[in-house]
Design a protein around this nucleic acid. Sequence first.
DNA 1: TGCGTCAACGCGCCCA
DNA 2: TGGGCGCGTTGACGCA
Length: 199
Amino acid sequence: MPILPENSSNLDLTISTPGFSSSPRSDEGSGGGREQLKLDMNRLPSSDDDEELSHGGSAPPRKKLRLTKEQSRLLEDCFRQNHTLNPKQKETLAKHLMLRPRQIEVWFQNRRARSKLKQTEMECEYLKRWFGSLTEQNNRLHTEVEELRAMKVGSSTVTSASSHTMCPRCERVTTAAIPSMAVVDVPAKKMIPPLEREH
DNA sequence: TGCGTCAACGCGCCCA
DNA sequence: TGGGCGCGTTGACGCA
């Protein structure tokens, strides 16, 4: 399976230096000036980079990395192909994007989390709507029961014989009794049709 | 200044 | 037992 999209070869992997930006961006609506800060975090690391970052001594203050538009786009493309990466793919992608494999790994973890969150929110909305329609249906049925009960009471005052019915199961003649609660509150869970998943 | 976003971290769990 | 993952959290950053 190819890891990188075909058009990834002409990636503009701009690495900005503080106070200098060679490619002004108009991305994401959130802040053009952010990119200047990510020289240190974005550089292709040396082999001992992780140790350097985790710092055998005191940990350096955490800098906020912002992925470039192209980096994000490529990562999104890869994520669309596969939600997880094997070590080889991770390494390749990291080299291609000039990031550390750990950063690729973290990005995919966060991306999966966002995806799941979005799915959960959609399910929540769906359940709310479903609950609303069930409530509405329940109310309608309650009203119907009340109407039927009123009709029954009215007719029973005319003839008492009509209150005797044949039980369909045991085939005995019984005194008809309208259940006090003809509409049962069924847990919505048991009535939910299969939910279409987003993918 | 409060808030939303998101990269990064830490920890526990699972599995080959 | 080490690596990968999920999950909760932290901290930097931009914006209204």
